[in-house]
Amino acid sequence: MSDHDFSDLRALFVNCSLKGASEPSNTQALMDVAIGVMEKQGVGVETIRAVDEDLVPGVYPDMTEHGAASDGWPAIFERVLAADILVLGTPIWLGEKSSVCTRVIERLYGNSGQLNDRGQWVYYGRVGGCIVTGNEDGAKHCAMNVLYSLQHLGYCIPPQADSCWLGEAGPGPSYADPGSGGPQNEFTQRNTVFAAWNLMHLAAMLKRSGGFPAHGNQREQWDAGCSFDHPNPEYR
């Protein structure tokens, strides 16, 4: 298989806009640049508009087991597991990622204690990135928050795994609005394309090597008394 053949990869883009799918989303418009790059390379891409899903609050895998009348997360989690690449897209509100993005990360967290078939945390061997849009400062802050959260849960983060577009501070045209300059902004377009390629490169490297190495990070072996060369021989 060619180093640039990514047809065995699948990517899931989760748009955390506050707008439903019936409304145009500036975040989706920028995400579509990365999606276009990946699709041209044969990656199977799926997009979810999170606000349209039945994502109840909570940090358990299935909130119907904890009093919720319904919960769409278990079905979404299956789509997460099927993806080698996860990209969270979010607008900026008051300098922070959207509340919808926070909820998606909370629900991802709810499954993070599960193990994969190698005894590692369930998200090991997958890669994560983010795309941010807004009309105010805070893009790097949002990216730091999202990317930290994803790596903490077990995702691998490649170099330059984020991109953003910021319009003029305060009310003004958003990324996809006519005359905004967003689709023509070289910095934003370059970073979005680079992020897409870096996500594909790392996902392919992990997939073709059998995932992230399974030594020194297996929960069941640790629980069974394996210290993985812990420097204090009396600890275990």
Rank of each mutant, 00 (worst) to 15 (best):
A11T: 00
I35N: 04
P213K: 07
D8I: 06
L166Q: 15
V80H: 13
Q28W: 14
I35W: 01
K40D: 14
P24R: 03
K140V: 00
N232I: 10
S7K: 04
W73M: 05
V80D: 09
Y60S: 12
S25Y: 04
G89H: 04
L153Y: 07
Y123E: 08
G216F: 09
L150W: 06
I92H: 05
W222N: 06
R126H: 10
W73I: 02
I35C: 01
S174A: 15
W121A: 06
F228R: 08
D117W: 11
W197Y: 15
H230G: 03
R208S: 08
R219H: 02
L9Y: 05
K40L: 12
S17D: 09
G182K: 07
V87K: 00
R49E: 00
D54T: 02
C16G: 14
V51H: 09
V193L: 05
T192M: 08
N111W: 09
G20A: 03
S112H: 11
I48F: 10
P61L: 13
G72L: 02
P91K: 05
L94M: 14
T47Y: 03
S25N: 04
A195M: 15
I105S: 01
D117L: 10
V45C: 13
M205T: 13
T133H: 09
E234Q: 15
V59H: 00
A68Y: 00
A214C: 05
A139T: 11
E220S: 11
K19R: 15
D162C: 12
N185Y: 10
N217I: 06
A50T: 02
N217P: 10
V100L: 04
Y155R: 02
D71K: 07
Q120L: 01
E78M: 01
I105H: 04
T192I: 01
N145V: 08
A203R: 01
I85E: 02
A75H: 01
F6H: 09
P61C: 08
G211Y: 04
P173Y: 08
H230S: 11
G42C: 15
S180E: 02
N198D: 08
T64L: 11
L153H: 03
G95I: 09
W165I: 06
A224C: 10
H66I: 06
S149E: 01
W165D: 13
V132M: 07
Q41F: 11
P91A: 09
R118C: 00
S98Y: 11
V122T: 10
P158H: 07
L166R: 15
I76H: 04
C101G: 05
V33D: 07
L12M: 05
R79Y: 06
M1G: 14
L30E: 06
M200E: 05
L147A: 07
G154Q: 07
N111E: 13
L202H: 08
N191Q: 12
L55H: 06
V104T: 07
G89C: 09
G110K: 03
W93T: 12
